[in-house]
């Protein structure tokens, strides 16, 4: 973003980028910011430099939102995710500009990325009420019992968003987490957090209940450590951790309460995502109930 619009003498209005926590847009409680530049080192904005306390607040918000969001009907979650796509479509130009700046892409390439991100929301919007049928079902146990396995969301998931693919990558790791009813604490790309912070504004106007998605910007290592160790976080996606030593350290910390860990791995965000990222943060609950005969008359041995 330019400070001065050169075609006219009007001074443009700059955006103060803020965190998105509990449905609100707070500054970092630390009062700190850091400079975000484009690929040519041109200053774009100041982003909040989140602290451990911001991370903690985000977990509290995510936990609070979990009951309602996981309890919402799958159809409802699908509509909400589709609404995100609609809102994003309407702000396409803004995101094309932000992604182009953030990732050093041409307008047309950035547009393709934003379109793919919109389509990804649509893809996952459709999954919300299908995944249970694909991965759950009745089990034919050898006895007079009704036995049904259903997937349920794991809980609060920390998502370390991809560092390079600051927007399509972000959407690709975030949407599957919340599609199934989890709530998320997202650590945005450290170098390119602006598209993520702007996505918060889209989510806030898309019927996504406050706290379902919480977006933090700042130092990945500094934020991931307390979140990996946080006892009220149920899972962590390490996709955006590029340092192997840090990934290992976080996985070790995550073992303290046996978080489900999705290890970092190279991902082609343009490819068909499959169901892998949906199932990574699902638990299987199996419920048994006796069936038995209709009455006592037929039952004897």
């Amino acid at each position: 973003m330019s400070t001065v619009d050169s075609s006219s003498s009007r001074l443009s209005v700059l955006k103060t980028y803020k965190l998105y926590v509990g449905g609100k847009f707070p500054r970092s409680e630390s009062g700190r910011v850091y400079e975000v530049s484009d690929s040519k080192n041109k200053w774009l904005a100041n982003a909040p430099l989140s602290s451990r306390k911001d991370a903690r607040d985000a977990v509290v918000a995510a936990r609070k939102a979990f009951g309602g969001w996981s309890g919402a009907t799958a159809y409802n979650r699908g509509q909400v995710l589709y609404r995100v796509a609609e809102m994003l479509e309407g702000r396409r130009d803004q995101f094309v500009r932000e992604v182009a700046d953030a990732e050093g892409l041409s307008k047309s390439k950035a547009a393709a990325v934003v379109d793919a991100a919109v389509d990804r929301w649509v893809w996952y919007a459709g999954w919300t009420d299908k995944i249970a049928q694909v991965v759950g079902g009745a089990n034919p146990v050898a006895g007079p019992f009704f036995n049904l396995s259903t997937p349920e969301p794991t809980g609060v998931v920390t998502v370390v968003a991809p560092q390079e693919s600051s927007f399509l990558g972000l959407v690709s790791v975030l949407a599957p987490v919340i599609a199934t009813g989890n709530t998320a604490v997202v650590i945005a790309s450290e170098q390119a957090p602006l598209p993520a912070l702007s996505l918060g504004e889209v989510l806030a106007t898309s019927d996504v209940p406050g706290g379902v998605v919480n977006i933090l910007s700042g130092r990945t290592a500094e934020l991931a450590a307390p979140l990996a160790a946080h006892q009220d976080v149920n899972a962590i996606d390490l996709t955006g951790v590029t340092d192997d030593a840090l990934a290992k350290e976080l996985e070790i910390a995550a073992a303290d309460n046996l978080k489900r860990v999705l290890r970092p791995q190279p991902v082609d965000f343009a490819a068909d995502p499959g169901t892998h990222r949906l199932t990574a943060f699902l638990e299987t609950k199996t419920v048994w109930h006796p069936t038995g005969s209709l009455g006592a008359s037929g039952s004897a041995y």
Binding site: P290, G292, A296, S299, Y301
Partner: peptide, 14 residues
């Protein structure tokens, strides 16, 4: 009375 449980108990004592 749960049918399955009752019959299972009877069978178990058997």
């Amino acid at each position: 009375v749960d049918t399955v449980g009752l019959e299972a108990r009877a069978a178990s004592l058997g």
